[in-house]
Simulated assay, not measured.
Amino acid sequence: MSEFAAYGGLFLTAFLAATIFPAQSEILLVGMHATGNYDHLALLLFATAGNVLGSVVNWALGRYLMHFQDRRWFPVPASMVARATRWYQRFGVWSLLLAWMPVIGDPLTLVAGILRVDIRIFLLLVTAGKAARYAVLVLAV
């Protein structure tokens, strides 16, 4: 596999992991890093960019498509939205630093869209949290 395809695969996996689709970008990132065949900074950048872009999709769903939440095809159950809303109301915009967390992270990014969090603040906080998570993984291997 070419190096470009490998980084592209990491980007795509990280993107999917931030949406409703099941994907484990951490496993792929750690595996690629462990081989020693890839640039550490590039791994961090591709994983972070893909994961943040996936979170932007969630933000846009919340911002523009929540009026479809009662539809069967809507990707986030009402119970997850309610839980994330309570979390967000408790910790405010700073909760977006935890958008990388399993279970609560993706709904938090959706709630940020519902609550019309400024996209610039959203990007700053979500990127910081997700980049920090990936950096810890790269440094731990």
Rank of each mutant, 00 (worst) to 15 (best):
E3Q: 15
E3G: 13
F4P: 02
Y7H: 07
Y7P: 09
G8L: 08
T13W: 00
I20F: 11
S25Q: 01
E26V: 07
L28Q: 00
L28W: 03
L29K: 10
H33K: 00
G36K: 02
G36F: 05
Y38M: 07
D39N: 12
D39G: 11
A42H: 04
A42M: 09
F46E: 06
F46H: 04
A47P: 04
V52A: 12
V56E: 01
V57F: 05
R63V: 14
L65F: 15
M66P: 15
H67C: 12
H67E: 15
F68E: 00
Q69Y: 04
R71N: 10
R72Q: 15
R72W: 13
F74G: 11
P75I: 04
V76Y: 05
S79A: 13
V81D: 12
A82F: 06
A82S: 14
A82H: 09
Y88I: 13
Y88R: 12
L97S: 02
L98Q: 08
L98P: 05
M101V: 14
V103M: 08
V103Y: 00
I104S: 11
I104N: 09
I104Y: 08
T109R: 03
R120K: 03
L123D: 14
L124M: 12
G129C: 01
R133I: 07
Y134N: 04
Y134S: 07
Y134Q: 02
L139Q: 14
